[in-house]
Design a binder for these strands. Structure first.
Lengths: 113, 113
DNA sequence: TTGGTATATTGTCATATTCGAATATAAATA
DNA sequence: TATTTATATTCGAATATGACAATATACCAA
C-alpha cells in the first residue's frame, strides 16, 4: 500500500487531465508543438480560457512552453500522458460497447443505483 | 479531432479516478474482490464515506458489486483501469525525478508561473 | 419478530473548479 | 515612441465536489 501523499499527487495529476477542454488541448498537442493561437483556432475555445488551461497544465508539468518570437509554442512533456489518455479512451469505448448488461444491475434489494 | 461528447465522457471517467480516496480504494481492489468492510479496514476511511465513493465508482461502471450474504464484494470491471492508473504513476514518478530542471522555467519575460 | 451487523443514502456545509469579462504583459512593427 | 498582435493574469459568480452526521435498508441469527 502506497502512502497518502502519493495518492494525492496521483489524483492531482488525474484531476488535471479530467477536463474536456484540457483534453481537447492535449489531443491537439498530440503530434508536437502548437502555438496558443493555433490551439484557439483548432479547439474553438476563447483565447483567455485556453491560456488559463495551459497555465494549469504548465504548473503540473504536463506541458512546456517555448517562446518563439511573439508566439509561444506548447508541447507535451511526457508521451506517456498520451498513452494514459488513450488507455482511458479504450476503457471508455469498451464500457460504452458492453453497456446495459451486468454493469449497473442491482445487487440484492439494496438501492445500488 | 474527436467530438465534444467524447471528451466529456473521457474527462468524466478521469474525474472519477481523480480522487485520493477512490485511488486508495481502487488500489485495494487491484488483486480481486474485496468486501466493503475490508476496504474500510484497509484504507481507514469511514464506512459511510467508502460507500459513497463505491457508489460513484459503480455509477461510472468502474467497479461492480456482488452481494454474498450480508457482505458486498466489489471488483474492478476492466483491468485497463489499473493499467492507466499505473501509467499515470509512471508519469508522476518521472516527473518527480526530473523536477526542478527546465519544467517550469520562465519563457521570455511572461509571468508564466 | 427482535436485535445485531453490514452496507447505502440523504442533508448540509465548506471548499474547489470553471468560465467570461476586463486587464496586463511581451514582442513586432510603424 | 505608439500601435498592433499574441498571450497571460485577475476577479467574481455559478456550479460541482467532498466530508461528516444521521438515518435507512438488507441480511442473519436468536
Amino acid at each position: 500500500m502506497k502512502n497518502h501523499e502519493f495518492y494525492c499527487l496521483h489524483s492531482d495529476l488525474c484531476k488535471t487531465l479530467a477536463n474536456p477542454k484540457r483534453q481537447l488541448i492535449l489531443d491537439a498537442l498530440r503530434n508536437g508543438e502548437v502555438t496558443v493561437g493555433d490551439l484557439v483556432n483548432q479547439t474553438g475555445i476563447p483565447q483567455a480560457n485556453v491560456s488559463q488551461h495551459l497555465s494549469i497544465l504548465r504548473n503540473k508539468g504536463i506541458v512546456v512552453a517555448r517562446r518563439h518570437g511573439s508566439r509561444v509554442n506548447y508541447s507535451i512533456t511526457n508521451p506517456k500522458i498520451i498513452k494514459a489518455f488513450d488507455l482511458i479512451s479504450e476503457v471508455l469505448n469498451e464500457s460504452l460497447a458492453g453497456q446495459s448488461r451486468t454493469v449497473n444491475k442491482a445487487v440484492g434489494k439494496t438501492h445500488l443505483a
